[in-house]
C-alpha cells in the first residue's frame, strides 16, 4: 500500500510539474487555437489518403 501511495503522489507531483512546464513553453496557446476553431477533421471534412 505504501508503494501505491508513493506512486500516486509521485505521479501527481510529476503531472503538476509537467502542466507548469507546458504552460511555461506556451503549449496552452496551441491547445486553445485548435479548440476555438471548428476542427474540420473531427467533423469529417477533408480527404481520405487513398
Amino acid at each position: 500500500m505504501f508503494h501505491r501511495k508513493a506512486a500516486s503522489i509521485a505521479v501527481i507531483i510529476i503531472a503538476i510539474a509537467m502542466v507548469v512546464f507546458g504552460i511555461y513553453r506556451t503549449e496552452v496557446s496551441d491547445v486553445f487555437n485548435k479548440a476555438i476553431r471548428i476542427c474540420l477533421e473531427c467533423i469529417g471534412i477533408g480527404w481520405l489518403p487513398w
Binding site: 509537467m18 502542466v19 496551441d30
Partner: peptide, 20 residues
C-alpha cells in the same frame, strides 16, 4: 494538436493534465 504542431513533438501540458 500539440504533437502534430510544427513547434512541439510532445505535450507536457496535456500529458500532465491527463496524468493529474
Amino acid at each position: 494538436a500539440v504533437i502534430g504542431s510544427a513547434k512541439y513533438r510532445f505535450s507536457f501540458y496535456v500529458t500532465g493534465l491527463i496524468l493529474l
